[in-house]
């Protein structure tokens, strides 16, 4: 199976203090990795490193066999909808079209763009301003934007934060469908929900605590809680995991 992302002995930090330490991870084609962990644990930093927005202090990241800055165009990035200015004067259609920056390519792909908007059920909203939409609708618009250039990898940073339960299931169902031909990495706080959709999971709290566990178990829940408290590190040291 093709390796999509390979991370070896990765360290990253600010001002001599490590935020991520000795991270190792391999993701293959069609993997669906859920990254969970406490606030400030380094989840978003890890995503930024994978996208080549930050440079590691040491270690290696390969994205499709090359450095992330070379191949990151193959990534469809979906931020949390709340990170963008909701008063920004922009329509749904303009946001989705932002995924393609070349005017010629944009014209050639106009039918495909409408198909993607239809798939995510935002076509009827295309002339609305982004600020007029609900949280779930906004997030689906951002997913549509990430899909228009047919990325091989989808990276989503807490896409279901501040969205109701029904909206969260809707988004995860779309992602499950997209996972048939795309590798997906998703950062989430909602352990129960995300793990019923993701194939793999990892807890990031400075270290990558575990991954490739396909099912939610009581042990995982304990690990997650332990990870939040920083206990996981101590447990690993004492070998009682």
């Amino acid at each position: 199976m093709d390796t999509i992302i390979k991370i070896e002995n990765l360290n990253f930090g600010y001002n001599n203090s490590l935020v991520l330490e000795n991270i190792n991870l391999i993701l293959k084609k069609n993997d669906f990795l859920a990254i969970i962990g406490p606030n400030g644990g380094g989840k978003t930093t890890l995503l930024k490193l994978i996208m080549g927005l930050l440079k590691p202090v040491s270690g290696k990241i390969e994205l499709l066999g090359q450095e992330p800055v070379i191949t990151r165009k193959k990534i469809g990035y979906v931020p949390q909808h709340t990170t963008n200015d909701e008063f920004f004067p922009i329509t749904v259609e303009d946001i989705v079209k932002m995924g393609i920056t070349n005017s010629k390519t944009l014209k050639e792909n106009s039918a495909k763009i409408l198909d993607i908007m239809d798939f995510l059920d935002v076509l009827k909203l295309k002339n609305k301003k982004i600020g007029e939409l609900s949280g779930g609708q906004k997030q689906r618009v951002l997913i549509a934007r990430a899909l228009v250039f047919e990325p091989e990898i989808l990276i989503l940073d807490e896409p279901t934060a501040s969205i109701d339960n029904e909206g969260q299931h809707l988004i995860y169902n779309y992602l499950k469908k997209l996972n048939k031909d795309k590798t997906i990495i998703i950062v989430s706080h909602d352990l129960n929900l995300i793990l019923s959709y993701a194939k793999q999971s990892a807890c990031v709290n400075k270290n990558l605590c575990f991954h490739n566990m396909p099912e939610i178990t009581d042990e995982m829940k304990d690990l997650y809680i332990g990870c939040q408290a920083g206990l996981i590190e101590r447990r690993l040291k004492h070998g009682n995991i």
Partner: peptide, 8 residues
């Protein structure tokens, strides 16, 4: 609108 997305 979204400088991170633009950079990626």
């Amino acid at each position: 609108y979204d400088s991170y997305f633009a950079e990626v």
